[in-house]
């Protein structure tokens, strides 16, 4: 039999609701931590590094540049990066905690932080640009909040799923483990 995960411990049995004993193979801690760290790094790139570079890019155009074009965003980048780091850490923690009953609560907390992250962008989703010339000026305001709000749909669904999982782990401890970590 091939092990599902590298150097995984031997299968464990857990009682299912219909009284059967189902086997599952808990992933080894090194494997859990490795994937957890990788997920954290990926999330960190997406939720913190990208906003940081956007902030740096906008910094080149803010104020009066030599080209006469000025670009300004209302986004609170520092808060966004901080929240992105928290979100990334929670993403890794969620993966590491998946075999435990902390999975649901961490997942739910991550979803709450993600809602905050999305709302922080949506409430400040305005990009302004102004071009000045000798006989006048043109200012452009780009509002993309409608786009950002749409991402709340997926996050809200994930939040409900997390609540159900947290409840399941309290009501039927270990019930989901044979399905999350089946013995192959």
């Amino acid at each position: 039999m091939t092990a599902a995960y590298p150097s995984s411990p031997p299968p464990t049995l857990v009682s299912s609701p219909d009284g059967a004993w189902l086997p599952f193979r808990r992933p080894s801690p090194p494997w859990l931590y490795t994937v957890g760290v990788l997920k954290t790094l990926w999330s960190l790139f997406f939720f913190a590094v990208v906003p940081y570079f956007v902030f740096q890019l906008l910094g080149h155009f803010s104020g009066s540049s030599s080209s006469g074009i000025s670009v300004h965003s209302d986004l609170p980048f520092q808060a966004l990066i901080d929240l992105g780091i928290v979100l990334s850490l929670l993403t890794g923690a969620r993966h590491i905690a998946k075999p435990t009953r902390w999975f649901g609560p961490i997942w739910f907390f991550r979803a709450v932080v993600k809602v905050g992250y999305v709302l922080l962008i949506a409430w400040n989703a305005i990009l302004m640009a102004s071009i000045g010339f000798s006989s006048g000026s043109v200012s452009i305001m780009f509002d993309y909040s409608g786009t950002i709000y749409l991402f709340l749909i997926g996050t809200a669904l994930a939040m409900i799923a997390a609540l159900i999982t947290a409840y399941e782990d309290v009501k039927y401890p270990g019930e989901r483990l044979p399905f999350d970590y089946p013995v192959k």
Binding site: P17, G154, A158, A161, E168, E175, F179
Partner: peptide, 25 residues
């Protein structure tokens, strides 16, 4: 194979729906 528990199924479907909604957006 044993049927998946009800709560597990609901949670999993919601998670798939969450991913699907994000992809559709």
């Amino acid at each position: 194979r044993p049927p998946k528990p009800r709560l597990y199924r609901i949670s999993r479907y919601l998670r798939w729906a969450s991913v699907l909604a994000t992809v559709l957006v």
